[in-house]
Design a protein around this nucleic acid. Sequence first.
RNA 1: GCCCGGGUGGCGGAAUUGGUAGACGCAAGGGACUUAAAAUCCCUCGGGAGUUUCUCCCGUGCCGGUUCGAGUCCGGCCCUGGGCACCA
Length: 817
Amino acid sequence: MADYKPQQIEKKWQDFWSAKGTYRVSEHNTRKKYYVLEMFPYPSGRIHMGHVRNYTIGDVVSRFKRARGFNVLHPIGWDAFGLPAENAAIQNSIHPSIWTRGNIEQMKQQLMRLGFSYDWSREIATCDVKYYRWEQWLFTRLHREGLAYRKTSVVNWDPVDQTVLANEQVIDGRGWRSGAVVEKKEIPQWFLRVSDYSEELLGELEHMTGWPDAVKTMQKNWIGRSEGVEAEFRVDGQEMPLKVFTTRPDTIMGVTYLALAPEHPLAGEVAKNRPDVADFISRCRKTLVSEAEIETVEKSGVSLEIDATHPISGEKIPVWTANFVLMSYGTGAVMSVPAHDQRDWEFAKKYGLGIKQVIFPKDGNEFDIEERAFTEKGTLGDSGWLSGLTSQEAFAKIAGFLEENSAGGTRTNYRLRDWGISRQRYWGAPIPIIHCERCGEVPVPDSDLPVELPLEIDIDGQRIPALSKIESFTATVCPECGEPARRETDTMDTFMESSWYFLRYASPDFEDGMFDPQKASYWLPVDQYIGGIEHAILHLLYSRFFTKALRDLELLKLDEPFENLLTQGMVVKDGAKMSKSLGNTVDPDDMIARYGADTVRMFMLFAAPVEKDLEWSERGVNGMFRFLGRVWRFATELLSEPQNGEHSGKFSAKGKATELEASTNRTIRKVTEDIESFKFNTAISAVMELFNELGSLWKEKEVGREDARPALLVITRLLYPMAPHFAEEIWELSGESGNLVDKEWIKWDEESFEGAEITIPVRVNSRVRNQISIKADSDEETAREAALSDSRVAEYIAGREIKNFVYVPKRIVDIRV
RNA sequence: GCCCGGGUGGCGGAAUUGGUAGACGCAAGGGACUUAAAAUCCCUCGGGAGUUUCUCCCGUGCCGGUUCGAGUCCGGCCCUGGGCACCA
């Protein structure tokens, strides 16, 4: 018997796998391919527990699928551009590149210590020129297709630091470093036309059976397709009518005012002569960065003191600007119907605007419109020639009327906006465009790609120079006319890199394109994608968009990138997400040093179901260490006897061996099915139960060495995907041939536990009164007889009439008297 | 504010997807071993009651409903986590 010392065995097996090149794969293989991928990490410095959880899950899937006979691709890389590198650079006067490279080196070592089955030969880092050059190449193709375009858009501007801020860097309307009040600035920026794909991105969701419903619903709502009507309201003295979009055209006769987003051009127009309006506009957007803030702030507005003409009634309708109207949705203007929309109602009450009810309950009941808005559909009234119609009938009538009078008509609107990819930052992939006074926006020709990010920069100050400040970078000549020109100085959103990295893994060193088409068509789609739920919308939607755009560029024959998706919960401690700022992080390295990688992995899998948050508990880790220690001691004791080299692996049928054999086989089935469905916590429980049973039978001398051995070997093999070093070592100790990493997954023998008697409860008047033992496949008559002949059950029936008898095979007998 | 999740013992969780609520583990208490500690091993462990090898009652956030039967389905509340387009 020996103590379990993981430190002595884990390195040994890691070196063994690495020396053998066990996880290197190629397309030249007769097995069926399986591509398992975890979301790649941002190299922030050190691995955190969220990574450990994510990658442990992926590793179990990878090892399990290998054992099930698949040619498994399991790659890893680094999402290496991003804001934190610049922050670190400023803080520590270290170049973002050096900081990032150092982190990658460190984190790679950490991942290796966890024993993950990665094909390290495919490692990529998105800040490598050989990676982002192909992203630049793609950008020029998207540009050619009109899918990349420039328009002005607003950024957060820190007037003290003279820099653009991310939303995250704006706290209560102030720059996080300078504390200066943030200003809004309109600058030209690059966008990708995701909206062209709204319909397909939405429609395809229906067929994506391998994705969680919650994620699909979130994406569906994010795309936000709505059928409605656009109506035009003419404004005196304005050439262009005001357009509004509404999903409730039936309420149009109840419009009492129009509300414009503060950024609406007409509001800006009026503001020129109205200081109060100008003041309102500048005030109301200054501190509001996100949609969440805009929608929770107290509603306020100001009248523009102009009137619009109702397209149907011809009435004069006052026009306001209000802080809750979003410029980015619909037309940036809404028709307000206080009687039938609660938000409009509240605004109208606050500013004394009219409330006109035009929809009435179908059942003819009264509704007090002074109390709140009536938002249901119903019958139109007080609506002129539309009165008496139902909401549904009115929809079509009104749309038709607007159409005929060239004042609007039916429209489908999407909430999904085009993707702004411009970042005014240094640490990113430069956008490959040259601005020429004569030729306009000229994409960098293929022969001049890549546009390398200049690495020689001065970072000792408190600022990283934007590319626009680096003259040697900006100055160039126009590829078309040869005259002096300037480079685009925006870099690309880091979501660009993560939208296609899964394709690059198929051929990470390919030099003639983004990926080798043959290899990509072999490996893709990703069969199992695993990552945090926080990426449910943006990253996953952008990756889907990229895949479809690449398909339409005829670079890829693929509609969707990720066949199956698993979203795992966060790792929390004391109820809060582990984060540096909260100071509640736990370093995986400490845990590995103390307990070993296998214990940490097992704990991560055992402590919570994958999709739920996991509460970190070092006591729990210790408990898992004790479990592995018990198995270890049992194994070393059992296997210490000299082996004769011949093991049938069969149970003897002596004593309780048959029972142990049945439990062993039942456990194989349970663990296999649980791993298939990612229920690792119950898979581990099942192994623990089997081990507990084996332990007691052994201690009570109910089974001998010959029967303990096959059970223990099964336990070892079932633990292998989760605790691979541990399992390999015991396997080697047992003297069995080969290594588990190359072994087929273990099969179970159904016959060993079929046909056994089972115990089911008998309920009388909803209370369990006793259990009966019957064959699993007993018919109702047999079950009835068994139940009624049970003395305790009989006591509770006691001569009363049986009013109802229910028998659910293998489950329950329920009697009502 | 809008969208999507989640609420089960002291704690993490299990419950064959409508069929014995609390598997497995942690913590706690008691005991064995030990000079001692650690480690290890054994027992108890949702609450209450009783005639205490056993039996009864209550119990899955709250209120109501469907059903022979509800942690699971339906309606309405409360609390809580994630996302909201420049954090990744």
